[in-house]
Nucleic acid binder design. Structure first.
Lengths: 332, 332
DNA sequence: CCATTCTATGCAACCGCTTGCATAAACGGC
DNA sequence: GCCGTTTATGCAAGCGGTTGCATAGAATGG
């Protein structure tokens, strides 16, 4: 077994409390004693037991990210990789550990998240991909668990970091309207996610605002490349094919582009395409994808920072909106 | 504060030990008592404190994945996303939690990993991207920490799951040789990684085996798209430009292709390209990328499974090699 | 019917660290 | 030189579980 605080105490000829105070950088401890104890710690290669510490202090310095999809699917989308990058980076800066929780079904998700927090494995949660009917949010609120949302809740005022997805969709759609497109279709992600509802809403508003009486055309699919292909195929089988697509995600857009190329359509001449996220690959596609850069990394970084702030200073929960930007490239 | 085992005990009119035994599914407890206790647990919404439990049992049911790059870079490459997918899935199956540790510099990496294990936050580690001079492996070995490697160690016999990277590179290179290419260059990832050394080795062997006396041409870059572009630019500035590229990673290959298209080279007519990994995007690139499918997901899944097996049965450490497959698409 | 074994449960020590309170020594003021 | 502060450290009771050992009562056997 590894050395305990008692071993250190014995070696340094002090009491365990003193060692504990040295660890905590308590000012009451004299410099000589502290030095003596530190010496003993390195000599014994001592590392404090985090469990014992958490048990006594009621804090773990660990947060968890919950991803509300099955492990099988979650990371197929680069969005999560980017998000994680941002979160990990903030954790590193603040000396927090990061746990991951993924689950496919909603019950399991709630159970797992609650267990981690109530079981005192983590101090708080970051929730990604918020559903419209969010049981988890309600459960966490009921249990007074500190958490921050990536996205926004339809019903509750909670800490969150989000994009203005309605506005994003307006920007993207308006861009196509301005390019003179006549049949602008929207390919949405799953409609049980708030982000999907918001983007659909923005799309609709932009069309209505256009004063050109453009038809609304919304289809739903999953946030995958395959989903994009399939949705595009459905749209293409319509009486009149769209001449522009707003895809709710870059990977969907990738699928769309792939389908279009395979079937001999020119982009953007025949069909213009616009995506969401500005995934790292999007600049490198052929043709390079016009997209809404939502700063996924910042979303992740800020959510972790906010959560840790809440945990440490009990500072009030914020509502942060990360600005997005339309990146015009070759597909429009 | 949430309910403790004592609260449950009081409510159920038994001792804490009995409750503990019910939690552990101890057979000695009578069915009635167990039912009574379970009733009390749900009534109190009881969740055992994982810290107290770990402290007493010396086990956490948590493992960590260490990623030996800075948080900033690690997830730019879809390889890690796929890997994580596999690991998370195995953890879910076996009811383990997953922690993440990322670090840019080697000292920090060792410190962080050791701290997690010696601090009893996790029971074992999965190490990704093994360096040639692996301090971490040696440190872990010295401390008798359970771990499994993704990749292989040059110096130590340890639990690992790997591809036969030498063979992969041979397959890929031979494929180009057979297509009659004359100047086959290899773009490697950082040479301090074992995987890089192995792939270079395979490339060399394949060329030598070709009996056509083909020149060896190796350049090094990072595992990024930008790295691929830059490396290709370097190769193109040579007296004689290569007519085939083996890229040690699909994202590198993507950068190569991008550079080639921009500069008006036809693929594969002028230059053939082959990658490694079969990232999800690779099938969808234009032209679709020929690549070695190394089953990244399986790599992750198996490594977690193996680690948990070791942890639970003290079963001997295995050495697993995941087969790879050459996927021929349009770039060769 | 009593001794013996078995079954189900309780007691209490322990896992390793933190922290409120107590205290001895050092200090300062008069 | 005495007393009230201040300073540095120790004591011991937690934090919330687990588990070896003891034991009361039930079951078994002769």
């Amino acid at each position: 077994m590894s050395a305990t605080i008692r071993d250190v105490a014995t070696l340094a000829n002090v009491s365990p409390s003193t060692v504990s105070r040295v660890i905590a950088n308590n000012q009451a401890i004299s410099l000589e004693t502290a030095a003596k104890v530190r010496g003993a710690m390195v000599r014994l290669n001592y590392v404090p037991n985090a469990n014992a510490r958490s048990l006594a202090k009621h804090r773990t310095k660990t947060i968890a990210l919950t991803i509300a999809r099955s492990a099988e699917e979650a990371f197929a989308n680069p969005f999560f990789a980017e998000l994680l990058r941002g979160i990990a980076s903030a954790c590193q800066q603040r000396d927090y550990k990061l746990m991951l929780s993924m689950s496919s079904n909603s019950d399991w998700e709630v159970k797992d998240a609650l267990q981690m927090v109530k079981g005192k494995q983590v101090d708080g949660l970051i929730l990604s991909s918020v559903r419209a009917d969010d049981f988890l949010v309600e459960a966490l609120l009921a249990e007074q668990v500190p958490f921050v949302l990536i996205g926004r809740s339809l019903k509750h005022h909670v800490a969150m970091v989000n994009n203005d997805n309605i506005d994003c969709a307006i920007q993207g759609t308006r861009h196509l309207v301005e390019r003179g497109r006549q049949r602008i279709a929207f390919i949405s992600g799953p409609r049980d996610l708030v982000v999907s509802l918001d983007r659909i809403e923005g799309y609709r508003r932009a069309l209505r605002a256009s004063s050109r009486n453009l038809p609304e055309l919304v289809v739903e699919t999953s946030f995958t490349t395959a989903g994009g292909r399939e949705a595009m195929a459905r749209l293409a089988s319509l009486a009149e094919m769209p001449d522009a697509i707003v895809a709710a995600d870059d990977v969907i857009a990738l699928g769309v582009i792939h389908w279009l190329k395979e079937h001999g359509f020119a982009i953007p001449a025949d069909v213009a395409v616009i995506g969401f996220n500005d995934d790292p690959m999007s600049a490198f596609m052929q043709p390079a994808l016009t997209t809404l850069r939502i700063s996924t990394y910042a979303l992740g970084f800020e959510s972790a920072r906010m959560l840790i702030d809440m945990l440490e200073n009990q500072s009030p929960s914020e509502q942060l909106v990360i600005p997005a930007e339309l990146i015009v490239r070759q597909t429009t």
